[in-house]
Design a protein around this nucleic acid. Sequence first.
DNA 1: CAGCATTATGTTATATTATAACATAACAGA
DNA 2: TCTGTTATGTTATAATATAACATAATGCTG
Lengths: 164, 164
Amino acid sequence: MTSERLHFISGDHDHQRCMKDAITRAEELCLQQGQRFTALRRRVFSLVWRQHKPIGAYEILEELQRDGRAAPPTVYRALDFLLESGLIHRIASLNAYVACLQPEHRHEGQFFICTSCRAFAELDSSLITTAIEQNARESGFEVQRHTIEIMGLCPQCRLLKENA
Amino acid sequence: MTSERLHFISGDHDHQRCMKDAITRAEELCLQQGQRFTALRRRVFSLVWRQHKPIGAYEILEELQRDGRAAPPTVYRALDFLLESGLIHRIASLNAYVACLQPEHRHEGQFFICTSCRAFAELDSSLITTAIEQNARESGFEVQRHTIEIMGLCPQCRLLKENA
DNA sequence: CAGCATTATGTTATATTATAACATAACAGA
DNA sequence: TCTGTTATGTTATAATATAACATAATGCTG
Ligand SMILES: [Zn+2]
Ligand SMILES: [Zn+2]
Ligand SMILES: [Zn+2]
Ligand SMILES: [Zn+2]
């Protein structure tokens, strides 16, 4: 993500289309990387995509169980695959998972999550990473990875609050 | 913390003294805020302080169990108190807790944690928070709180690695 | 000091999140 | 087809955290 602007996906877009595109892109990406985008992985990926919101592993499990028997390792293995392929991210402070909006470009990202509606947006902001790098370098710390999760009100919910 | 420099506490200081001071400061802080720094809270606080490293709730529990019976709620309630008093912080990506080095000044902080020796340092860097605020504001997002956890090599471990 | 409300802790059970270990199945290349 | 590899199924359990209710300690008020 080269943009430094948060993009909260609104409720009124053609979500079927949006999801189908994402799946196609995921398929292509896996193909390029010599990885198998199996039926299970596709199913779990589409469940993560479904709402443009963080989803827990056990929520995913419940959905899988509608199709028949399923156990936690099934979900966690699929999630691990998707995480390693860069198709999803994990939100540590929520124990939840979100779909990556720019999987073609490997990144860790920074996550902005609405405490009211749970909408999320991700950035890969050089403004933020540079600030961190600078603080680290001044002290001789070598950054390997980061967890950056910002909670607050998305633009919609902020407006709702102000008008209330 | 007004400094923007990471301070990793080295192994060769007078830790007994350092811990005792921290406990005294914690006591005073609680007194000021009309809160009770009970024996249990003191014990848990000192366990979090003990190593200047993140510690898990169940590690604390094990220590308490050396003194007699103890169950998870005992630990979690003490931790909740210390968190709310600003005496410790929680590291979401590790499910662990660290002592706050500047409890007099309420803050969320940013945490730098060594993946090799688990040493940690905390900042309250305006460079970082300003970068986040700027990205948020551009998009109409209102920041409420953040989780910022940077993993990497502390100066000591970085030098060790380079000389290896 | 007694009585009472409030706060803190003890105790038991259980919820939630995640992984270990081993069996079976699907797949891909020779 | 044979075979090694990767993926999934299955059962059990680990690790983290909370709910609910009982008891105890504390501090205030009269
Ligand atoms: Zn992403
Ligand atoms: Zn919202
Ligand atoms: Zn702090
Ligand atoms: Zn280190």
